[in-house]
């Protein structure tokens, strides 16, 4: 296991360095001058411009700036937002729980619907249920989720009036952020109706964000299950006269779980991509919307720090999945 971890680290360290170079480099080749941007419409005299370039270190050679960026990043300092003037890391930490809350709900929804759908489709292979559910899965997989979100808003918010259009909670509720997770904060706030309001705000964005992972999980669960159902041990279990559902749940599904869990882990990048669109549609104050807004406003430090943090999270989750996978399946770590 230690050798496996060392091998993984040998891959991860260069990639991490690459990520810092990309995050740093992108911002340096963005058109426009950061100092002019900070000055806004008032403009700057050439002397003041030079002074500010020196103050923020933009006049130093790029390699020096890069090393400085990495050193500060390692110390947890990712600079300040040009717009809000707050530290990038603090902004990220404030907004991140909103994205995690949305992402977790989406993953939960995708798993609870996608996996049973795929397993049942495999068990009833070739039936109308199989064809229907795989048709739904392929449609979900092909869905432009930004449009899907708008459609749901038209139906559930516009026509039926069941759910709110945007935000995380109705404006009349106000309580301090304890954890940043609105469902939890609302529940412990003691304000009547706050939890239900938070839940109602969460429903549509979760459905939208869950759509593609659900489709992927359904398709993957079906194929994993089909593979397992053809194995000798399943046939043996059946021939021993065990009830069909016992064979499916205890013998087949448990073994199909490994590829399903791996697929789930690999969805993290997709969830973050989906979060960019979902958060924009529903004005959800998470890191996806934060990044889109910052790119549009050319808020360099935020784009730079955000890229670094998001890529770091994707890598950390992928590593976690790899390690869990190796723990469950010894063949992987001895390969």
């Amino acid at each position: 296991m230690i050798r496996f971890l060392l091998r993984k680290l040998a891959v991860i360290v260069p990639v991490l360095i690459g990520i810092t170079i990309v995050s740093f480099g992108f911002v340096r080749i963005l058109p426009g001058d950061p100092v002019m941007l900070m000055a806004g419409e008032r403009g700057l005299t050439p002397e003041r411009h030079a002074e500010m370039m020196a103050q923020f270190g933009f006049d130093r050679p790029l390699p020096v700036q890069y090393l400085d960026f990495v050193a500060s990043a390692l110390g947890g300092d990712l600079g300040q937002s040009l717009v809000s003037k707050k530290p990038v890391l603090a902004e990220f930490l404030t907004l991140f729980p909103a994205t995690v809350e949305l992402g977790l709900c989406a993953v939960l929804l995708a798993t609870l619907i996608g996996v049973p759908l795929g397993v049942l489709a495999a068990v009833k292979r070739g039936s109308w249920f199989d064809q229907l559910s795989m048709g739904i899965a392929l449609t979900g997989y092909s869905m432009p989720i930004f449009w899907w979100g708008l459609l749901l808003v038209i139906l559930f918010s516009g026509t039926l009036g069941w759910t709110p259009v945007s935000g995380r909670i109705a404006l009349q509720y106000y309580f301090p952020d304890a954890t940043g997770f609105m469902l939890y904060d609302a529940a412990v706030s003691g304000q009547k109706g706050a939890f239900v309001s938070a839940l109602r705000h969460l429903i549509l964005p979760s459905i939208v964000l869950a759509t593609i992972p659900m489709a992927v999980l359904a398709r993957q669960s079906r194929s994993a299950m089909l593979e397992v159902l053809g194995e000798d041990y399943v046939r043996t279990a059946r021939s021993r006269g065990l009830s069909p559902w016992r064979v499916i749940c205890l013998h087949a599904f448990r073994n199909a779980l490994i590829p399903i869990v791996t697929t789930l882990g690999l969805q993290i990048g997709g969830i973050l991509t989906g979060a960019i669109l979902t958060e924009t549609i529903f004005s959800w104050p998470g890191i996806g919307k934060w990044m889109v807004d910052s790119i549009a406003r050319r808020d360099y430090p935020v784009v730079q720090g955000g890229l670094l943090l998001i890529a770091g999270i994707v890598m950390a989750v992928n590593l976690l999945v790899d390690v869990l996978y190796a723990l469950i399946n010894p063949r992987i770590r001895h390969k």
Binding site: I19, G269, G270, L272, T273
Partner: peptide, 9 residues
Amino acid sequence: VILAFPSLL
């Protein structure tokens, strides 16, 4: 490195 970033971002 390219794959570590969410593609749309």
